[in-house]
Simulated scan of single mutants.
Amino acid sequence: MPLVTLSDVLQPALKRGHAVAGLVTLGWEDMRAYVAAAEAENVPVILQAGPSCRDHTPLPVLGKMFRYLAEGSSVPVVAHLDHGYTADECREALESGFTSLMFDGSRLPLQQNIDETAAIAEMAHAAGISCEGEIGFVGYADGESSAGTDPDEAAQFARDTKVDAMAISVGNVHLQENKEGGLDEPRIRAIEALTPVPLVIHGGSGVPMAQRQHLARTSKICKYNIGTELRMAFGQALRAAVNSDPSRFDRVQILKDTHDPLVAATRTVLQGFKGDDPC
C-alpha cells in the first residue's frame, strides 16, 4: 500500500486507545525488518530517518527506500523525518517523498520555537503531509539534561503551531539502554488536559514496558520513538553472525543473519502498543 501521513495513523490511535511505533532506521536491513514485523503484527509503522541516518544516507535515497517498502507492504507505512533542525532540511525531506516532518526547535526560546515550527507545519500541510513539533527539550543519557515540558506552554505551542503531533519532555531521555526510568504521569495528564493533539515520547527505549502499555491505552500518547533497544538487538545479532563463522567475509550473507532476530525483537516492541483494533 502507498505511504500514509502521520495523521493517518495517529488519529485512529487517539480514538481507539493504542499507540504507533516510530522506529529509528539506520539502513536497509533494519527498515525492511521493521516492515516485516509490522506486517506480522498487522499494525502500521513509522519509519524514521534521524540525524545519524541522514549523515550516512542522503534524504533522496532514504525517501526512495521508504517508498519502495511502503508500496510492497500490507500495512500502512509513514516516512518520517526525525529531528529536522532547519527549514531547508525539512523541505528536502518533503521533496524526497517523506510524508511527515518533525521539526525540532526544542532548544529555542518558546516564541521562536513556535514561529519556526508553525512555518514548517504550514509547508507540510500545503503539501498534504503531517508535521510533528517538540516543546520541552528531551535530553540524552550521559549527555545533555532534559528540560521538562510546561503544560501551559505545551497548550500554547499546539494551538499556535497547528502541529499534528507534539513531542514532550516528561522524564524521557534519548539513548537510554535500560528501562529503569519512568515517565512523569502527572505531568502527562496535565498536558493532555490542555490540548487535543496526539502526544509523542522520544527516547521510548528507556520507558518500562508496563508503563508504555498503560499509557498507550489510557493517555493521548499515540507515538513512541524506539531506537536504542532495536539497535542493540541488531548489534547482538550482527555480532553473533560474524562470530559464528570467522571465515565468512561476504557482508550480504552476514547481514541476512540479522533479519530474523531483529524481526522478533521488533514484534515484541510492537505488541506493547496494540489496542483492540490497531489498523
Rank of each mutant, 00 (worst) to 15 (best):
N172K: 11
L194F: 09
A237E: 06
D260W: 04
E122M: 06
E192S: 09
I254T: 12
E122L: 08
L262N: 01
M65A: 15
P196V: 09
P208T: 07
G22P: 04
V61S: 12
P246K: 12
A33I: 03
K256V: 09
G139M: 03
L230Q: 05
M123A: 12
G136H: 10
L26E: 08
R107H: 15
E122K: 12
Y140T: 12
E132I: 08
N42P: 02
A240V: 14
Y34W: 05
K256L: 13
D260I: 08
C131K: 01
I191D: 07
I191Y: 07
A165Q: 00
F273S: 02
G128S: 05
D257V: 05
A240F: 04
G139F: 02
P60E: 13
N113P: 11
E229F: 02
E185G: 09
R16P: 00
A70G: 15
P246G: 10
A233D: 06
R159E: 15
Q253G: 15
T5Y: 00
V24E: 06
V197C: 10
L108G: 06
M31H: 03
R187W: 09
Q112G: 00
T57A: 11
R16S: 10
A237V: 13
R212N: 08
G63D: 02
S130M: 08
E95L: 14
L23N: 00
D8R: 02
P196T: 12
A147V: 15
L199K: 06
G27L: 03
R217M: 13
E134R: 01
A193F: 10
L238K: 13
G97V: 06
L69G: 06
E229I: 05
L23K: 00
A190H: 11
A167S: 12
R187H: 08
T268Y: 00
V75P: 13
A21F: 02
H174T: 04
H18D: 09
I254D: 09
A36D: 10
R248W: 01
P246S: 13
K162G: 09
S219M: 11
D150G: 14
V197L: 11
E29H: 11
A126S: 11
Q211L: 10
A124K: 05
L183S: 08
L23G: 04
A118D: 04
P60Y: 08
C53T: 01
R251E: 06
A167L: 11
E185M: 14
F137H: 15
F66T: 01
L238S: 14
P151A: 11
P76T: 05
G171C: 05
A37G: 05
V45C: 04
I221R: 00
G27W: 03
S106Q: 07
T25M: 09
A40F: 02
A216G: 14
R187Q: 12
G50F: 02
E177V: 12
G128R: 05
M65V: 15
T161R: 08
A233L: 08
L194H: 04
D250T: 08
L3S: 10
N178F: 07
G139E: 12
H125I: 06
G105I: 03
S219Y: 13
P51I: 14
L69D: 12
G136L: 07
E29G: 06
M209A: 14
H202G: 00
E180R: 13
H125P: 03
N113W: 09
R91C: 02
Y68C: 14
G272H: 06
F234L: 15
C222G: 05
E177R: 13
P58R: 11
D164E: 13
I254S: 05
A19Y: 06
P198G: 10
A240N: 15
E39L: 05
D88I: 09
G235Y: 01
A87F: 14
